[in-house]
């Protein structure tokens, strides 16, 4: 399941909801992304996440489908927030569930690596010197690329 929302999420509640009544799940892996308080050596006062309503949901659904195709997963949850966030705020949650740990751990990393460069979000950091758009990082493309299969062409 995917959710794109302005409001915060509660990891405990989300995981409880996922596992309730599903005792076939043997492993859960989760990732939470947070707003850092510094960019380089400058303090961030807030971060605003812009997204592409409609396409964001489609793109996250495609990512979930791809993960389910590659790994034996019993459940997938991706929550991505948008709007104005403060340092320390949660931005994104990825939870994957599988019978054994390998599939959930690997697919969780795959999803967050792909989100970085394939989910239509753009981050604007507010600092004392003004607002600055976050540039994509080369290492994020490298991280995403290692999941591209040779057979994908």
């Amino acid at each position: 399941m995917i959710r794109v929302q302005g409001e915060d999420f509660d990891i405990g509640v989300e995981i409880a909801r996922m596992t309730e009544g599903n005792t076939e799940i043997g492993a859960l892996a989760s990732f939470v992304g947070l707003v850092r308080d510094y960019a380089g050596d400058e303090a961030i006062t807030s971060m605003t996440l812009e997204h592409y309503p409609g396409m964001t949901e489609k793109q996250l659904e495609r990512l979930e489908a791809e993960a389910r195709k590659r790994w034996d997963l019993q459940d997938v949850l991706i929550i991505h927030r948008y709007g104005k966030l403060m340092p320390g705020d949660r931005i994104v949650l990825v939870v994957t569930a599988s019978p054994h740990r390998g599939a959930s751990l690997e697919s969780c990393q795959f999803l967050i690596d792909w989100l970085k460069t394939n989910a239509p979000f753009w981050k604007l950091e507010d600092m004392d010197s003004g607002a600055k758009w976050v540039e994509s990082r080369q290492e994020d493309f490298v991280a995403a690329d290692r999941w591209v299969r040779v057979t994908d062409g």
Binding site: H80, K116, T117, N118, P120, F121, W122, K123, W133, E135
Partner: peptide, 10 residues
């Protein structure tokens, strides 16, 4: 059609 800089999700 949408035009934008490289995405910075996550």
């Amino acid at each position: 059609v949408a035009l934008f800089p490289p995405m910075t999700g996550g």
